[in-house]
Amino acid sequence: MTRLAAPPEAMPRPKKHPSADRPARRRGGRRYATWAWNALAMLLAVVFGFPIYWMLITAFKTSGDVTTITPKFWPRHPSLRGFAEVLHDPIFLDDMRNSLTITLSAVVISIVIGFFGAMAIARFRFLGRKVFIFAVLIVQMIPLLALTIPMSLLLDHAHLKNTTTGVIIAYLVFTMPYTVWTLRTFIANVPKELDEAAMVDGCSRWQTFYKIILPLVAPGLIATGVYGWILAWNEFVLANTLLLDNNKATLPMYLLYFQSSPVHGADWPGLMAAATLTSLPVVVLFVIFQSRISAGLTAGAVKG
């Protein structure tokens, strides 16, 4: 965390820093235009936010109000039944913990591994470099559905099926490649002169990585982390295939419980309450890191 807190001003190119741009745009009596843009932004927020709003109010509706001939834009008899049931369900909390363990581990591991890999291709020329880049790309293209059963067999042979560790390893397949790609562009954006200078000052290569490059790509680490987080957090098919015990289940598996089955109808308010509570940690995470994300989601990638 202390690393992440390193001030961006440490970057040697002060002009690059975004917040400095904005006042300039305000110059020249553009307030009226800004007002119009704000209105457009609010319109977009309403359009994009409407399905979210629908999810939220459905969670508060009673079953009879979920689908009605005249849509109910506000729950007539707001009910906390769905939320109460989910929050009091020990299985929900268990599954939340499982999801947290799996997602956090997969993201942290892929960031560490991805950072090293990205360092290598951004900073070194070596035989097999292109093959490596290509392999990273190819892995992203494997359809996950085709991969599921072979992956399950592989983990079975390695005695990792039906374990949290196994799912974490399987998730690296889709969290790591993106990390390598994206971090590579971040690292490439840190001028090599900095490495050189540090090494002239007597830093070892490792110290250079650690003290110079890592702080500068911290926003990139967060941004790729959030991306991987969302993918892993919402993944269903692999988790459902690899985890056999109920007490190891993750949140997307939990959501299924509310859907209709041959003998029971779907509990939509319950499902939407559970879905809201499932999305919330991600949103909270976003809000915490938001400033860093927008500063850094792709700070490196825009190198011309």
Binding site: I149, S152, D156, D245
Partner: peptide, 24 residues
């Protein structure tokens, strides 16, 4: 008792029967 859902069930059965871990 491990409770199951019909969704994705055959994939789960196939992969479990094809392997050796956790066969119910």
């Amino acid at each position: 008792v491990q409770w199951q859902q019909w969704n994705n069930y055959t994939t789960k059965l196939d992969s479990t029967f094809a392997g050796s871990t956790g066969v119910p």
